[in-house]
Design a binder for these strands. Structure first.
Lengths: 248, 248
DNA sequence: CGCATGATTGAACCAGCTCAACCTTAGTGG
DNA sequence: CCACTAAGGTTGAGCTGGTTCAATCATGCG
């Protein structure tokens, strides 16, 4: 019978997937002070302009990070899932530059920035893991740029699907894996710089060409390699995440 | 008569623009071990796949960061200039995910990653500044995503011009400021996800509409606010950079 | 049942692309 | 000091991927 996991094990697992951590490191992470929060669909985890003395870590659920253009158009600049760190431990806290909004029911842990920084000072291995995590994040964000810039509609959607798929440690990257889309077609549009109309047509095209099977928000990838090739997807920043699962 | 600056003052200036640093912090930065390197136009500062135990910091010149799609198309995912940190202090070093290539004659300092990490441990103020710097970088990269996704050709080029302009501490963000483009039109195209043909037409359109004046690679912005509005440009991650200039 | 949100479809339109020249400028070598 | 060359910039004409606008069709939910 599996014991109930410590909430912060999501963070411990993520970090230990980046760098080998000692058991002392791991328990130090689980000993961090934190406050758990449940957030309903549509509510905000981060609001533009706010300053927070906490680092928020996603424990469960999905969220999207977005900005608004001057004309009021929303653009989604990232998707967040379990284990993601929503804001870096900057002191004094900088103003958030974007919104992070829950796509599903979400739980997050708020860890005092000062505690996290102190932990990095006392446990160099954790600092290394954190830097590696940020490095991987940067790479993912840059992949989004390349995705928007030099890929057509099918490729963009496919790339996003690959990324979403990799967030599931169990099945991600395998043939037949299933993605339960946390995004509506309108949100897919805002994440890929397209219109809802064209997203819809592209989804049907991907289905017609056998890249995916669809049943409402449920996407199945019969041939992962084929989709990844269409998407020109790079596994590197994602593979490292299959760390040891840490229990509380 | 101005004394010759310490090469690492580029880094010290950048960091002190993020967070108030003590004079002890500043001199600790200047005391870091480093190796200076000159890089000719077209040569690489970073190559995809390589692992480096050093953190490279741009001292002078411009470089662009790019990736190649499977079809061999280049996409530029960022521009680097004086003070930029090219790779995060991750240990063990991760494989670089992209290329960084000199656009002009460039000088960089290679600082052993371990030394930088040790500095962060011994000087918490420097760690704070480094996190703030990385945070600002992330925001800039996300701005690129939003730029590609929800902006038309004029806006994209204008946004890139605003960013380039802000890299010049002296005149950036002022009416009449001058940008000496480090990029060819082909590079502008790869950075904005357009074709050279359309970049060319867009430049002429921007000129015809009075947003810019042009003389070869020399761009002059008569009315900065007007250009920034067209670009929907956000100053936040850039303004903080006007730190105290640190001499050696 | 009625309503709201999300998905789907059709038809006209256009921003930006493709292809294919041609022009300009700064080097380079003689 | 000039002819030659290569890289970068400019231009035209036709084409297309994706948009716009405007409906219509699900489907969950109170």
């Amino acid at each position: 019978m599996k014991e109930r996991e410590h909430p912060l094990s999501a963070l411990a697992t993520r970090l230990s997937g980046r760098t080998e951590l000692t058991s002392a490191d791991l328990s130090a992470i689980l000993d961090l002070p934190y406050q758990e929060r449940r957030v309903a669909v549509g509510d905000y985890l981060v609001q533009e302009g706010e300053r927070s003395g906490n680092c928020q870590v996603m424990l469960t659920g999905f969220a999207h990070r977005h900005r608004f253009s001057a004309e009021g158009l929303r653009h989604i600049v990232g998707i967040h899932g379990e284990g993601d760190i929503l804001n870096l431990p900057a002191l004094p806290p900088a103003r958030a530059e974007d919104f992070v909004q829950a796509l599903s029911m979400v739980t997050v842990a708020a860890i005092p920035t000062e505690s996290l920084l102190a932990l990095c000072r006392s446990h160099p291995g954790i600092a290394n893991a954190l830097w590696a995590e940020v490095d991987a994040n940067l790479s993912v964000v840059r992949a989004w740029i390349a995705n928007m810039g030099r890929r057509d509609a099918r490729g963009r959607i496919a790339h996003l699907f690959c990324e979403l798929s990799m967030r599931d440690h169990r099945t991600g990257g395998q043939d037949g894996c299933e993605i339960v889309l946390p995004l509506t077609q309108a949100e897919l549009a805002d994440a890929t710089g397209m219109t809802t109309v064209h997203v819809n047509r592209t989804l049907r095209a991907l289905e017609a060409e056998g890249f995916i099977d669809r049943d409402r928000r449920r996407i199945i990838v019969p041939n992962w390699r084929r989709l990844a090739e269409l998407a020109d997807f790079r596994m590197a920043p994602w593979t490292a995440r299959t760390g040891v699962v840490v229990k509380g």
